[in-house]
């Protein structure tokens, strides 16, 4: 039954066995196509297995289901240095620490340092670990090291 598959999936996730997690997620999806939890697990496991090249087509193939994968899509595009498209995928997303961090990392790679630094400034009150490392990188690259 599907509950046993999810138990197995959960165990693989806990053990960071991401490739096996993908296989079990696929088993769930063969029984229950479009199952949101299984789809999310598959995409996240592919990303954590550093298999971005398979994560993106999985995301594309999910477009017929009502699941919002735009953050994951933007992240994968960013990892592939497809920066304009990555920004495009973030447009539909509400501002939260995740989307703001990703956007600032994309802007950094695009060389849009002032916009990048602006976001880190806004995120300062969110108490994100190691945020200052990227903030400082943005300031230095913007020629604003004195700040």
């Amino acid at each position: 039954p599907i509950e046993d598959l999810f138990t197995s999936l959960n165990r693989h996730i806990e053990r960071s066995e991401f490739q096996q997690a993908v296989k079990v997620a696929d088993q769930v999806l063969s029984i229950a196509p479009g199952d949101e939890d299984a789809m999310r697990c598959k995409v996240v496991a592919l990303i954590k297995a550093d298999n971005i090249d398979d994560a993106l087509p999985t995301i594309q193939s999910s477009q017929k289901f009502p699941i919002d994968f735009n953050y994951f899509k933007a992240y994968c595009l960013y990892r592939q240095n497809n920066l304009e498209e990555a920004l495009e995928s973030l447009k539909s997303q509400e501002n939260n620490p995740a989307t703001m961090l990703l956007k600032s990392q994309i802007l950094y790679r695009l060389g849009e340092m002032d916009a990048c630094v602006d976001i880190y400034q806004k995120l300062q009150k969110s108490k994100i670990d190691s945020l200052e490392i990227n903030f400082v990188a943005g300031l230095i690259s913007a020629g604003r090291a004195s700040e």
Binding site: E3, T7, N10, I13, D37, C41, L101, Q105, I128
Partner: peptide, 21 residues
Amino acid sequence: NPIVLDLAYNYIDFPSLENRM
């Protein structure tokens, strides 16, 4: 070049499967 961390990666999370098992 200054070091930039991939902080966005920390927000790629598995859903809770608590009520699916």
